[in-house]
Amino acid sequence: MFESCLRGLKFYFYMVGVSIKTQLQYRYAFVMNILGWAMTYAGTAITMWVMLYSFQTIRGWMFWELLFLFGLSVLSWSICIIFFFHFRNMDEYIVEGTFDRFLVRPIHPFLHVVALKFDVGAFGQLLFSIVALIIAYVQLGLNWQFSQWLIFLGAVIGGTLIQGGMLVLISGVAFWTTRSERLFWTLMWPAKNLMNYPLTIFPRVIQLLVTFVLPFAFVNFLPALLLLGKTKESFAPYWGFFTLPVGIIFFTICLKFWTIGLNHYKSAGS
């Protein structure tokens, strides 16, 4: 067991190296990718600022708090992209038959798919989110204790697992339908946009949905309540503690769904 994990890890890191090398071959695209994403997110932040300039607050959230909320979601999302973003192409791997070869090797096919890409382009978003979080931290005059840093770390890891789990879940649908990328755009993007704002501005149904069904609320909103000490919300702040366990459980469920899907895999073509 341990030995096979080690072999899997060795394989993974080797493939990461390969993937980075491949992406660096196209230097121009590489730089533009990073820059492009950083700019896109900065643009969203500026829009927020403009909006808040006229409204002052949204449901009691001021601009720097919103920036923190936004930065936190982008941080875990960019880590998620690095590891899992290519899962949205799962249908392509199936249609093109790439997936077949993963099934005739003594390594779990899931690891094979994870190892297909290590998306360096996501460093643009990572950079943006770290800068945004630092600015928000300073502007809000936060001074976290060690325990709060732990909560923050838990939120980042848990948030990565929740969003990664979503990508895995959506990709698993492809085992039945062969098509899944559309689902990614119709499910993931709205959810991502939703996460840019305090959850309480949305209808109750949506709040419940993203808390208990697809737990996006745990990615940034609930931990932000806790970390920013916002107590006058309809959610008690202690919810924010649970991002990491929720992430682990949710990811496990998604992975299970994916492995069940594997048995329904209908290899394409002849």
Binding site: G97, D100, R101, L103, V104, P106, I107, H108, P109
Partner: peptide
């Protein structure tokens, strides 16, 4: 037993590279 089976077989798909 995919992974164990994979160790004892070799596969070549003419249409697609492994």
């Amino acid at each position: 037993e995919r992974q164990r089976n994979a160790r004892q077989i070799g596969v070549v798909f003419g249409q697609r590279s492994q």
